[in-house]
């Protein structure tokens, strides 16, 4: 049975992965561009500790905002993120089962794994995997991370990122994201449309460029200072803030092509630093999530 509402779909995914031993974590409370940035993925992917987690993550992509006028594009949206480390041998079968749980039966739909290698230069991260197609629609990004923050991973986690709005539109058979039923009697548009309109204005026209440029410098400096003091997680917050500030400046058209590369380089530098610092800290703590023998 197909999940009838947006929230029911999310609940089913949560229950499905909770039943398979995942920790159900919550969003990280700093703006970010993708679920991968949540420390529950980015940092926990590092090092030897086993870790299975699932959570919904709100993502902000300022340049994708369309003033609430485009039926398919949003300046912010939700991902459902699963990280299994190490990825179990039957990880793909688990994924197909999760799709069945929300009402996508592989004998009713054409489910395909299409090569799509993932790389995030600002995170110094890359992996190999696929886009999952459901009747030609890209529904999920499936990636075996190989490197994060410039560090080789061991063991290798499998990351599954569901594009929630797209899948819900497919299940509910609607052509406009704002027509999705979020909860019985309440649509996605009723909840999120105003936000899309206002943030589009903010990101494209009203964001104060001077402030943002200054904030970027401050966040970067703070992140470095905190890293130096071994306060890894507070430092990580500032890296995310810097990254988001860059995204706003980019949407605002305040960054030229050459400057763009420089900013990306600066964020990458921070990401590499934090990955190393985090790993060192976990080791110092004796890798607390390793099973005791």
């Amino acid at each position: 049975m197909a999940a009838k509402t947006f929230q029911e779909m999310i609940l089913r995914l949560q229950n499905f992965w909770a039943d398979r031993g995942c920790v159900i974590q919550q969003p990280w409370d700093v703006e970010k561009g993708a679920g991968t940035y949540n420390a529950a993925t980015f940092l926990r992917a590092l090092g030897p500790e086993p870790w299975n987690v699932a959570y919904v993550e709100p993502c902000r992509r300022p340049t994708d905002g369309r003033y609430g006028e485009n039926p398919n594009r949003l300046g912010s949206y939700y991902q459902f993120q699963v990280l299994l480390k190490p990825g179990p041998d039957d990880v793909l079968d688990l994924y197909w089962e999760s799709m069945k749980a929300i009402g996508i039966d592989p004998m009713d739909h054409d489910l395909r794994l299409v090569e799509d290698d993932w790389e995030q230069p600002t995170l110094g991260a890359w992996g190999l995997g696929w886009e999952v197609w459901v009747d030609g629609m890209e529904a999920t990004q499936f990636t075996y991370f190989q490197q994060v923050g410039g560090i080789e991973l061991d063991p290798i986690p499998a990351e599954i990122t569901y594009g929630l709005e797209r899948i819900a539109m497919f299940l509910q058979d609607v052509d406009n994201v704002y027509d999705l039923v979020w909860a019985p009697g309440v649509t996605y548009g009723q909840i999120r449309h105003q936000e899309e309109v206002e943030f589009s204005h903010f990101h494209f026209e009203d964001a104060d460029v001077d402030h943002h440029l200054r904030w970027f410098e401050d966040y970067e400096a703070n992140a470095r200072e905190l890293m130096g003091k071994g306060l890894v997680l507070p430092a990580y917050d500032f890296i995310m803030k810097a990254s988001h500030t860059f995204n706003v400046l980019d949407a605002r058209g305040a960054i030229s092509v050459t400057e763009r590369q420089k900013y990306i380089g600066r964020i990458r530098g921070l990401s590499r630093g934090i990955a190393k610092a985090y790993l060192g800290k976990r080791e110092e703590l004796g890798f607390p999530l390793l099973p005791t023998t």
Binding site: D108, H109, D135, G136, M137
Partner: peptide, 20 residues
């Protein structure tokens, strides 16, 4: 497509939505 699904029209409808 790759799977002999119960109703090919469902696959066609889904793909058409994406194409549109």
């Amino acid at each position: 497509y790759n799977t002999p699904v119960r109703d090919p029209q469902v696959v066609a409808d889904g793909n058409l939505r994406v194409l549109r």
